[in-house]
Design a protein around this nucleic acid. Structure first.
Lengths: 345, 345
DNA sequence: GGCCTGCGTTAAATCGTTTCACCCCCGACC
DNA sequence: GGTCGGGGGTGAAACGATTTAACGCAGGCC
């Protein structure tokens, strides 16, 4: 019935010592087939389940990794989480998912909890750029991988995507398609992704030899759907509208697109749109969205692999800064060609 | 430096016994203020962090709860997860998030892991209706709460939303608006939510006194965006199209809406659409989507509270089956009134 | 002055595993 | 025939906290 069936109960049941049971569990090859079967039988009959707490206490090897994300509501992060989860569970690790929701208070509470759990390592998208919480973790001997947050600190692993290159790709594409009044709807500049993507956009203009006036930055308070809607309203109110908009992420782009379409603006004929992240909803929008794809699951997988590798070979581990390349996915929202639209019937 | 600073190190440092340190941590009121401060100081200086494994081993009280969801990619589940996470972290519990992805193999692997972790309890959206995995957990003395999966089993807690009522609301609304050729795009019938929502839809037709022919069921293999797109293509190919579509969830509705809009079908003038779940993207769609709202975060919070309560008062706990009422949110995609649409300029 | 009472503290037992040193038996080898 | 070696086991220590019984000490009471 109750769970309190310990390795000792199994031992008595199988008429062996606890050491032998432990061996069956961890090094089956060293125990004679006959006894092994007996022990396995006892385990089965009693419904024995290892107690991981005791295990970890003795062996010192935890079986969980922590993941702290900025916003579980953003599909970008859920995809990263999925990648982490896949890799971790293949390695037999549990994933403890925490949502900091952009609050450093919540972040530190979660980090504290993870420290007490003595997790294998922590994957974190830090709220603050000062990385105070991250350093605290590392000082306690925990391995940490920064997610989507580049750093120069050689004492940390990091997995990120080249945001500057992504911004450049997006705007280069728009320029090549012939758009000449581009607005970048961007998040607050304390968000490093926002800053980087904008710098890339500026690079693109410079490299193309155009006047820097072809690109304008419109800042919004957050990288979400609502902010995108607000931005669209602002643009609609202008006497001279842009012919293309580059949004710092897809949530912004979706909000923007919705309001524009409802106002009768044709996309891309009147205004082209490019998003960022290429979340699944981007392809399913009213007008399929051109977007800069980040290898989301791969980011998660890689980060998980790094943190697992680091704790496998403590000491000799080389901290790595992995930087993936983004990839522009061109869809209908930014094609210059006039397309004949099907009409009902 | 390294993390291996134990309660014993703190004790020597503060010149007290380990018992006293433990008291400072757990029952601060019984220890004299002077010593308490001394101990706290030592903890601070040494950067001591409790080892939860040892704690749990001795006290038998775990500090984590498990959450197994069907699909982390679905915003519905991430919102539920957020609710769980909020409540759990207020109670000082960690949440171990697992994604079964609809595979019972993955599900049982995760359940096994959670059992070894001796989690406080498990919140699970079961893959199979036979609940084999769930029963195994309970037999091991673990408290379980079923999420979004009604059950008659009095030995389990369950938190769900009345899907039948939701289906009825949706179709009653469509009928009231005057739609008379309704197609319900539904998931496979082994998914109980799909079945229930359809039954509710049938109820609505019956109660309205209409002919049962006004409602047709179109089954698709999965409750996701792609299936919605496929369904739309099928409907477009028909010579006689429905005047309204009720989708078993919002992902289907978004896929459907996208394809219809691109084909030039006007929503709701030509075809009205009602979705289910009211995920945030529903309100931000090309045409804001009427949808049946489920209290997603509340589901998560309630489930977490139940599982925590159950383990606080073992034995005397009354298993509860909480059933929330869904709420229809009417937006533009299903309004009968002809609306004048704004045109640019 | 002995004794009881409380308070603060200590020492030891305990939780369920893993690990390691050691034991026993039996065949092989010199 | 004694010793070596090794396969197959055993048993106890250790992990780091919690918990509880016991203990020392100061003050108050009779």
């Amino acid at each position: 019935m109750g769970s309190p069936v310990s390795i000792r109960d199994v031992a008595t049941r199988a008429k062996v010592s606890v050491g032998t049971v432990s061996n069956v569990l961890n090094r089956p090859e060293v125990v004679a087939p006959a006894t092994r079967d007996r022990v396995m039988g006892a385990i089965e009959e009693l419904g024995f389940v290892r107690n991981d707490a005791a295990r970890q206490l003795r062996s010192g090897t935890p079986r969980a990794i922590g993941l702290v994300v900025l916003d579980v509501g953003n599909p970008f992060f859920t995809d990263v989480a999925r990648g982490v989860e896949d890799t971790a569970s293949e390695a037999g690790h549990a994933v403890i998912l925490c949502n900091s929701d952009g609050s450093s208070q919540r972040e530190s509470r979660h980090v504290e909890l993870l420290a007490e759990q003595r997790v294998h390592g922590v994957l974190i998208t830090p709220v603050d750029t000062d990385l105070a919480a991250v350093r605290r973790l590392r000082d306690r001997g925990m391995s940490v991988v920064l997610l989507d947050h580049p750093t120069a600190d050689p004492g940390l692993c990091a997995v990120a995507v080249d945001d500057r290159a992504g911004g450049e790709q997006a705007v280069t594409h728009l320029l090549a398609e012939g758009y000449e009044r581009i607005v970048m709807v961007n998040g607050p500049s304390h968000v490093h992704q926002a800053r980087q993507r904008h710098e890339g956009a500026v690079d693109a203009v410079r490299k193309s030899g155009r006047d820097s006036g072809v690109l304008e930055e419109l800042k919004v308070p957050a990288l979400n759907v609502v902010s995108g809607q607000r931005a669209a309203e602002q643009l609609l109110a202008r006497s001279v509208r842009p012919d293309a908009v580059f949004c710092a992420n897809d949530l912004l782009a979706l909000g923007l697109l919705q309001v524009l379409v409802r106002a009768g603006v044709r996309v891309p004929e009147d205004i082209a749109i490019v998003g960022y992240d290429d979340i699944d909803f981007a392809a399913a929008a009213a007008v399929p969205l051109t977007s800069v794809r980040q290898p989301r699951q791969l980011i998660g997988r890689t980060a998980a692999e790094l943190v697992i590798a680091e704790t496998m070979t403590p000491g000799e581990h080389e901290h790595q800064h992995v930087l993936f390349a983004p990839e522009l996915v061109v869809r209908e929202s930014s094609r210059r060609v006039q397309r004949s639209r099907r009409r009902p019937r």
